[in-house]
Structures are given as structure tokens and as C-alpha cells.
């Protein structure tokens, strides 16, 4: 038994990364970044607002949170809808109470199906970023380039129609991309994406169609990861966000602006028994002297031009 000789050949074993999307840069070796508020810690809340068709397409994969049982899966279809009808409105009220401006990563199907929600988001001054078409709109290698292009364009067009402004930002379903995604986003005029989780500040990402910015919306801090995957309680999640905030606040005193990304999901965090913990965190963050809520658009703008 032996492996093909190529398995012990390393054509990209060179200084730097094994691709050309971005160069290596330590977080601790960059010019300090300043947020528009002048505060040292930017809390970037990203809410995923999603519509799951009761018929999952599984092309190229089934999104997290999608249908589970044999058809018709009333259980998951309606539980996800609960987040949109009820949980999300609890969140909007909580954001208003704490003065938080947030980014809503919305499936464009939300705009087509429930234009009132988009109007309520816009009226409250939140940002809308494109989160594909619906939860069948997943991207991965295997999706044909023209289909991926059509999906990105359809999402941006529909959200522009619903909200009156073309989204500047993009978040893929499950942060999953093909090798073409960043280039197609740049071609479509998207200025930043939220998929790569390798950093804690915005950085420039290179494609054949020009640069765009990547804002790392850390999946490790999300309600999906900590509450749904790791099965920690909402109170523990709040404690973890507070521990992260304390650490970043101390680090910001030495290295300049820091970002705490908080990615939440209405059908997870918007439940009655969790909502109080989330409100407690928002109130606590609003009271921290070195802290401001910023949208991902504001975060992207804070990165100095190349």
C-alpha cells in the first residue's frame, strides 16, 4: 500500500497563505482602527432573518435549521416562522430600548413575502444585508457559476425593491462559498461579505473582479453555535459575551479598536425563555462606557482605503 506521489508534494508550500485571497496579517501588527462613535469596542449585531421553504432543495446542501422530518415538516417550518413573526419583533423592540442599530441578514424571500418586516427594519434605522434568496439558496462548489450569479443578483434585486436601497453587504447561508463567490459578489457591486471567520477586524479580500472587504462575523460567538450546537444556556451565552467584551475592552486600550460580533437568530434567541437574557445583555452592553453598537456597514467603512 502506498499513496500517489503527489500526496507528498506541496506546490503551495511557500511564505504566506496557500491562496491569493488575502495576505497574512497578525491582528496585533496593524494600524489601530477607529470606529465612527469614537468608542473602542464596536458591538456588531447581525440578525439572520430567514425563510425555510417546506420543500428543502438540498442543492448543494441542506442549510442548518432546515426541515428535518419527512414531508410535511410542520414542526420545523412553523418553528422557523415563529422566529420571523414573533421573535424578531421582540428583538426589534429590544434594540429600540437599548439604542442598538444592527444589521439584518435577510433572505430576499422575506422582502417578497413579508414587506412589512422590511419596512419596520428600515424605519428603525437598521441595515439590511443580503442573505441569499431563501434557505434553499445555499452556495458551495458544485453550484454552476451562472446559477450562483443568478442567485446573488436575485437576492440583491429583491431586497433593493423591498427596502429602497441595494444591500452593500452579503452573508452566505452557513457562510458557505464556492471558489467563485467572492468574485461574483465583487462583480455584483457588493462591498463587503461576512463569511470568513479568520479575524476580528475587517480586512481586504482580493478577487479577479477587484477587492471587497470581509467582516468576520465570528460563528463561535453566535447563538446557533453556543446555544443550539454546544447546548449551553442563554445565561451562559450572556456570560460568554460579557467575558469576551471584557477581554476585548482591555485589548483595545493597547491595540486600538476591537469588534465584538454577535450573530443571533430570531427562532433561537427570540424565544420567551431566552429573550430576557438577551435583553439583559443588550442593556449591559449599552451601559458600558467604551462601547457602541455599530452596523456591519459602519464597520466596513472604518477600514481605511487600500
Amino acid at each position: 500500500m502506498s499513496l500517489e506521489p503527489e500526496y507528498l508534494e506541496y506546490p503551495l508550500r511557500r511564505q504566506g497563505m496557500d491562496h491569493d485571497y488575502y495576505g497574512y496579517a497578525s491582528l496585533f501588527d496593524r494600524p489601530p482602527i477607529a470606529w465612527p462613535s469614537g468608542k473602542s469596542v464596536a458591538v456588531a449585531i447581525v440578525v439572520n432573518l430567514e425563510w425555510f421553504p417546506i420543500l428543502p432543495a438540498d442543492k448543494p446542501f441542506r442549510a442548518p435549521g432546515h426541515m428535518v422530518t419527512p414531508y410535511p415538516d410542520y414542526r420545523h417550518y412553523t418553528s422557523r416562522e415563529y422566529g420571523t413573526r414573533v421573535g424578531f419583533y421582540r428583538m426589534l423592540d429590544a434594540f429600540a430600548k437599548s439604542g442598538a442599530k444592527v444589521s439584518v441578514a435577510a433572505n430576499s424571500a422575506i422582502g417578497e413575502r413579508y414587506p412589512q418586516i422590511i419596512a419596520d427594519i428600515v424605519d428603525a434605522g437598521h441595515e439590511i444585508i443580503a442573505h441569499s434568496t431563501d434557505m434553499n439558496g445555499a452556495i458551495a462548489t458544485g453550484l454552476a457559476e451562472d446559477e450562483e450569479h443568478a442567485l446573488i443578483t436575485a437576492s440583491l434585486d429583491a431586497l433593493e425593491t423591498a427596502s429602497g436601497a441595494r444591500p452593500r453587504g452579503w452573508m452566505s447561508i452557513a457562510r458557505s462559498q464556492s471558489f467563485n463567490t467572492a468574485r461574483l459578489l465583487a462583480e455584483a457591486g457588493v462591498s463587503y461579505m461576512c463569511d470568513w471567520v479568520n479575524d476580528e477586524l475587517p480586512y481586504r479580500f482580493t478577487t479577479a473582479a477587484g477587492d471587497l472587504i470581509n467582516i468576520p462575523v465570528n460563528h463561535e460567538l453566535s447563538d446557533r453555535q453556543i446555544i443550539t450546537v454546544q447546548q449551553n444556556s442563554a445565561d451562559s451565552w450572556v456570560q460568554q459575551m460579557q467575558d469576551a467584551h471584557a477581554f476585548l475592552t482591555a485589548e483595545a486600550k493597547i491595540f486600538g479598536g476591537r469588534m465584538l460580533p454577535i450573530n443571533v437568530t430570531p427562532y433561537i434567541m427570540g424565544l420567551p425563555y431566552r429573550m430576557g437574557a438577551f435583553e439583559r445583555l443588550l442593556g449591559w452592553l449599552a451601559a458600558q462606557p467604551d462601547t457602541a453598537f455599530h452596523t456591519t456597514g459602519e464597520i466596513a467603512d472604518a477600514l481605511a482605503p487600500a
Partner: peptide, 11 residues
């Protein structure tokens, strides 16, 4: 996942 596994790699 199919390459690129964006979350796996970037994590």
C-alpha cells in the same frame, strides 16, 4: 464539505 470549506479553513 466541498472545498473551499470556508468556515473550517478560516476558523
Amino acid at each position: 464539505k466541498p472545498h473551499p470549506d470556508v468556515v473550517g479553513y478560516s476558523h
